[in-house]
Design a protein around this nucleic acid. Structure first.
Lengths: 230, 230
DNA sequence: ACAAAAGTGTTAATCTTACACCCATGG
DNA sequence: CCATGGGTGTAAGATTAACACTTTTGT
């Protein structure tokens, strides 16, 4: 038992993904106020308190640093190599979070979040510490995940036009997809319910039907597993 | 910055899987010598030293506690809820490891490993702490993994009869599979090279060709991703 | 009437599944 | 010669991939 002289600190970090029609899939970053890496961009996070669970710590830190509350959170990976923080040894358990499109908009309004900002996943700034690595793992994860979990819905509003879902996939995959095959496949999963509403057109083109997402079917698929190739 | 009164300790644990023709897929457990959970079975692991990486810590602990060195190691999940250890708060980064069939045999010989033992994944004893949960996540992982990574090879010897690979899948999936379709599919991946050797028959049946595993093709598939449904 | 985006079907090719018989060996 | 496990092919069905024209709206 060699625990007595261990002085490792435990932190959590969260890679938060959001989606907007304009910018596609984006990541939430904060600008550091203090050294080391002062003024660098970084993934939000902080030390775990003695009495709280890891997940509670993530939600608290996100609230404190960005004013955002996520609706999907899963553990991503733990980073603990000596030297990843120049001050002391820190093991950080990184989380992967998704927020609804509506939350995406709210960020600017939050006072806590003066130094928080969304960055498109193809326009990322240099990051503090090993946060580049963490973000890399997170992007890999979200790209893999859309193939076997219908997570897209965690990024969209409750009611959305089909094209938003398609754009989201295009943004993540980084390539065009066949709209016809995509929609047939997605509808075959049965997780989309058609509503009777239509999007008000934004000046151009035919207005699209709005869809709602069928939570029951979604949870069933999550359990059974699915395979969604596009 | 609330790090000053943090007294969380950092540990690693490893769920080690092995394969033998007789017992199928098994997990390596150790019997605890001291309280709490004295004499209970547990996953091998221990505290991380100040200067070593997490992975080094895992390999060291495995060597110390079981005398085994693994040839595949990946991070599994981190467990850090307050109360998972009755003595103090411990965050444990759990790893997922695979050993070759040949190492499987060697365990009994090791002196360090008096209290280490293999248990078939369907014959697990009650476990200390939250190790039941950890093992659950690990078994879920290995079952999922054979569908998209050719990890079976990490469990088999360098040269092996096809039927070993099949038995391994049967043992993990917990159901019979069609030998003809399985072999066609596996060969189509191109990761198997036929050798000119034959297994000496063990008393019954036609001797089987031995296969070797094509590392180059394997690594290519790991990168590209694969989808292996059986 | 035109530009822009939404909606929708068919066909060929591929992949998957189900299924049964012969072969080589040891006893 | 028989019991045991190894080895192999085919046909029907399901899935996927490729592909283009029509509809609705705003201007």
């Amino acid at each position: 038992m060699t625990s007595f002289d261990q002085h490792i600190k435990v932190a959590v970090d969260a890679v938060v993904f959001g989606y907007s029609k304009q910018e596609g899939v984006s990541v939430l970053l904060i600008q550091r106020k203090y050294p080391p890496f002062q003024n660098s961009w970084a993934i939000p996070g902080g030390f775990v308190l003695e009495h709280e669970s890891l997940e509670e710590a993530v939600r608290r830190e996100l609230q404190e640093e960005t004013g955002i509350s996520v609706n999907y959170l899963e553990q991503l990976y733990s980073f603990g190599n000596p030297g990843r923080d120049p001050r002391q040894r820190i093991v950080s358990i990184a989380y992967f979070a998704l927020v609804k499109s509506s939350q995406f908009q709210q960020l600017k309004a939050s006072t806590d979040a003066e130094h928080a900002q969304w960055f498109g996943i193809n326009e990322l700034p240099p990051l503090a510490f090993d946060h580049q690595d963490i973000l890399g793992v997170a992007i890999e994860r979200i790209r893999a995940k859309i193939r076997y979990q219908p997570i897209g819905f965690e990024l969209l509003d409750k009611i959305f036009p089909f094209s938003d879902l398609e754009h989201l996939y295009v943004s993540l995959l980084g390539r065009e997809i066949d709209r016809r095959n995509f929609s047939r496949k997605m509808l075959a999963l049965g997780i989309l319910d058609e509503t009777k509403e239509y999007a008000k057109s934004e000046g151009k083109g035919r207005p699209s039907k709005l869809f709602r997402f069928n939570e029951q079917r979604y949870q069933q698929l999550e359990k059974e597993g699915m395979n969604f190739e596009v």
